[in-house]
């Protein structure tokens, strides 16, 4: 009887493991299709032969993209955006979080400031007023519009506020008795002690900047200032619209008319998507180490 139960348990285990493995494969398969397309020959892609494995393997698409000025430029804008945006976000969050986390200090106006900040961040006048305001501030078509308006993220700020709150009070108290100022306490004691939390914030902010595209298409009309993801948005949606008229294309295909000149370069777009994903894959191991910290610090105050 005992062995019978064990056997049943084993079977359940096998079943559960298979379901989980299937889900994991489903999560990754779409990425396999795009990698396969990016490495296949032009003809194999346009005639829909490629599924999960490259057909007519070559790296021409990648070579071509390296020489495509628009693509290289968009990639550089995205990199610049991360390099400028992350330090700005870290600095702004750290200096804002410190006063808001020192609950033991009597500081008139702190609660009011917190409420104003929450209302400001949660109530939005909508896209049109924001567009008009940025326009009147001269921010349209300016690199700053990509990094400055999003500099203070409420959820990342809360992670740091709560982390600062958890640091032992004696540290700052004794330092201040020795004559240290609040700036000293913040930058010489709090910041070095908060490395894991700051790393979490830096990584999430970097991923957020890399993945943003809506601000690019709304506030930037000069193509040389487009981040990579905004550039790709235009490519992807244009292709989607083309797909919607593909019924006609299919008919011409059945009639034996293959118009390569009009076919949009699917393989090239696949290579762009792969290259835009690579930076995320590179930081992903670090992200994984920190995202539980981020979650438990931010959303579940213990």
């Amino acid at each position: 009887m005992v062995t019978g139960r064990r056997l049943g348990d084993r079977l359940v285990d096998v079943l559960l493991w298979s379901i989980l493995a299937l889900l994991a494969v489903l999560s990754l398969l779409p990425f396999l299709t795009v990698i396969a397309r990016s490495l296949s020959s032009f003809v194999a892609v346009t005639t829909n032969q490629v599924s999960f494995w490259p057909i007519g393997f070559n790296v021409d698409n990648y070579v071509y993209l390296m020489r495509d000025n628009w693509f290289v430029n968009a990639f550089a804008v995205s990199v610049a955006r991360v390099l400028a945006g992350v330090p700005l976000t870290l600095l702004l969050i750290v200096i804002t979080a410190y006063p808001l986390s020192q609950d033991r200090l009597h500081m008139p106006g702190r609660t009011v400031f917190k409420i104003i900040m929450l209302v400001g961040l949660l109530f939005s006048g909508g896209l049109i007023p924001i567009y008009l305001a940025y326009k009147s501030l001269g921010l349209l078509n300016h690199f700053a519009v990509l990094v400055v308006p999003g500099a203070l993220n409420i959820f990342l700020a809360i992670i740091i506020i709560n982390f600062f709150r958890g640091l032992p009070q004696e540290l700052s108290e004794s330092a201040m008795l020795d004559g240290a100022s609040h700036f000293d306490v913040l930058f010489r004691i709090f910041v070095p002690l908060s490395r894991p939390a700051l790393a979490t914030v830096a990584l999430f902010s970097a991923v957020g900047h890399w993945n943003s595209w809506f601000d690019g298409i709304v506030f930037v009309s000069r193509q040389e200032l487009w981040p990579l993801q905004s550039y790709l948005y235009v490519q992807v949606t244009t292709r989607n619209l083309n797909r919607m008229v593909e019924v006609e294309r299919n008919q011409s295909r059945q009639a034996g008319v293959l118009d390569f000149a009009q076919a949009t370069p699917e393989a090239l777009q696949a290579a762009m998507i792969v290259l835009a994903t690579v930076p995320i894959i590179l930081v992903y191991p670090f992200l994984q180490r920190y995202f539980v910290t981020g979650l438990t610090l931010g959303s579940l105050k213990g």
Binding site: T33, V34, Y233, N240, I273
Partner: peptide, 9 residues
Amino acid sequence: VLIGGILIE
């Protein structure tokens, strides 16, 4: 954008 580009295809 990237996921969309993959799934649309």
